[in-house]
Design a protein around this nucleic acid. Structure first.
Lengths: 134, 134
DNA sequence: TGACAATGACTGCCTAGGCAGGTAGATTGG
DNA sequence: CCAATCTACCTGCCTAGGCAGTCATTGTCA
């Protein structure tokens, strides 16, 4: 499990590095995961991101620092609840999204090649069951 | 996949922490993995450990530092090839092994509860296939 | 209203892995 | 025999996550 996950992240890193536009931004696979969740409607604060990814709040602060430094996201205090920090994709972040998604899909397809739809669903079911057992 | 792996390591950490003897040693789940490989016959140098775990050499140096500081392993320069550092479990390390293995098995069984033998084998087969696709 | 709890973000300290560069020791070709 | 190369390990710097403690803000309840 560990190796599959590590191999997948490595492959995604390499796929991003091979794209000249994305490579210039220096986006890692971990950062892509955060960006892709942030692109979903309804997820816009640091805490929601943490819940969605079962991520540590401290880690998220630092991740946001890195993404902000690269100009991919912006931080904004929420006026209604000043404890919240709203995170938004910048134009640069939005612009990179389609290519990132393309890389992600290509890598996943590569790992799942030779799997029938039924097998893929079965694998997913097994993983969900293990998580429920946790 | 990431969440299953993370949940598994968390559960293993907690299981180790619940055992009073093991908790006193402060062994993490990552450290247990290294210890268990080291306990296998034929794996005794840092490089072999790295290959066995597809682990970075620099990371292994620091992991060995931590394990040595806790008195669980010992470093010894190999007289035949002085580049090699032989790693060995100390008495304390060997003594902790049975209980560590027990924790590991218990946690794994917990995650796999409700799985038939056929399902477990199928899951393993899927993971192996994904790794081969990498 | 005022004390208290709860929440959200941040920070410091820890473990942990990847990568590049350096060094000591071993191996090999001329 | 010696220079080039390779190997094993170490080190520094980076990303990355977990945990505990702090601070500001908000909600709650007497």
């Amino acid at each position: 499990m560990y190796r599959v996950r590590a191999a997948h992240m490595n492959a995604l890193d390499e796929a991003i590095a091979r794209d000249p536009d994305l490579a210039a931004l220096g986006i890692s696979a971990c950062q892509y995961v955060v960006i892709s969740v942030l692109a979903k409607r309804g997820v816009d604060s640091a805490t929601e991101l943490c819940k969605d990814l079962s991520y540590d709040a401290g880690a998220m602060t630092r991740m946001a620092d890195r993404l902000e430094a690269k100009g991919l996201i912006s931080r904004r205090r929420c006026p209604e609840d000043r404890r919240l920090v709203k995170l938004e994709l910048t134009e640069a972040g939005l612009a990179a999204l389609p290519k990132l998604r393309e890389c992600s899909v290509r890598v996943l397809n590569h790992f799942m090649r030779g799997f029938s739809q039924a097998e893929a669903r079965q694998l997913e079911g097994y993983l969900v069951r293990m998580l429920q057992n946790a």
